[in-house]
Write a protein that binds this DNA or RNA. Structure first.
Length: 273
DNA sequence: TATCAGGGCCTAG
DNA sequence: CTAGGCCCTGAT
């Protein structure tokens, strides 16, 4: 099946964005995304055109929203004020990034793991957990492991997690499993909460602080007014914005601006050591 | 070999 | 509100 995407869309940048950790890149330029029980293979064929492995219906029903294609990022970039030259430059460099709508449970575990780790080591741990506890699915290209559900993780002990060398994060993950599988935190129900209530609910899990809660809210619940501030964003705020966070001024696209900023900082690490 | 920082959070004071 | 500890990796 072939589709046309007219708005900003760059697979390589999305894969490198630091919001998804299980995207696979094939040598021929094909990319693999997984959400829930669904696996997508997608490859750019020419400018704005893509070959996808799913039906048009599934693209419209599922992946269109997954890639946040109901929003024009072109328009969002255009509205960045000329006076904000740093942000314009960052958005230019990050042209093609999208905020993905990923599974809340997977994002919760992933971003609990992410604290005080590098992106490659996050990828390794998340992939290992999927391999060990998630269902295997055969596709045309490979056997893929889905991310395990709370039910599939409910009998996990700290011993089972030792192999992933998660350190102090192990008890946080066990607490997340306990609360979500036990029903004290319903990740579906909180999806209708307003930003602050959602944020507060997410933080009820041990090891979920401000930054991780913002990541879950932005990368799985689509709360684009929220902007996670990590060590990199902190450096940018200090060096480019005189220590004053610009995010409140970006309104309901603050999270998207954060993504451009994070990507830009990653591409120019030397400037922000 | 030793040191440091990595998409932070929790606890103590 | 801030300082220190925390598990472990990979880079230097």
């Amino acid at each position: 099946m072939n589709i046309k995407i007219t708005d900003d869309f760059n697979l390589q940048k999305i894969a490198d964005s630091g919001q998804c950790f299980r995207v696979k890149v094939f040598s021929d330029g094909m990319y693999r995304f997984i959400t829930g029980e669904n696996v997508l293979y997608i490859k750019q064929t020419e400018n704005g055109f893509y070959e996808i492995s799913c039906s048009e219906d599934q693209w419209q029903d599922l992946w269109h929203a997954y890639f946040h294609l109901d929003r024009s990022y072109q328009e969002i970039r255009r509205k960045i004020p000329d006076t904000d030259s740093y942000m314009k430059q960052a958005a230019d460099s990050g042209l093609g990034l999208r905020i993905l709508r990923q599974e809340p449970w997977e994002m919760m575990i992933t971003f609990i793991i992410s604290q005080q780790r590098t992106i490659p080591s996050i990828k390794k741990a998340v992939e290992g957990i999927a391999q060990s506890f998630g269902d295997a699915v055969k596709t045309d290209y490979e056997t893929v492991h889905l991310f395990p559900s709370p039910a599939q993780m409910c009998r996990i002990t700290s011993k089972d997690l030792d192999q992933f060398r998660l350190g102090y994060r192990t008890s946080y993950i066990l607490d997340a499993i306990d609360k979500v599988y036990g029903g004290r935190l319903d990740l579906d129900k909180i999806s209708v909460y307003d930003d602050m209530a959602l944020f507060h609910a997410l933080k009820s899990v041990r090891g979920v602080g401000d930054k991780v809660a913002n990541c879950i809210a932005l990368f799985s619940y689509g709360r684009t007014s929220l902007a996670p501030v990590d060590t990199w964003i902190k450096k940018v705020i200090d060096q480019e914005y005189q220590g004053q966070t610009p995010f409140p001024g970006y309104g309901d696209v603050a999270g998207i601006m954060q993504q451009y900023m994070f990507y830009y900082a990653q591409q120019h690490k030397g400037r922000y050591q």
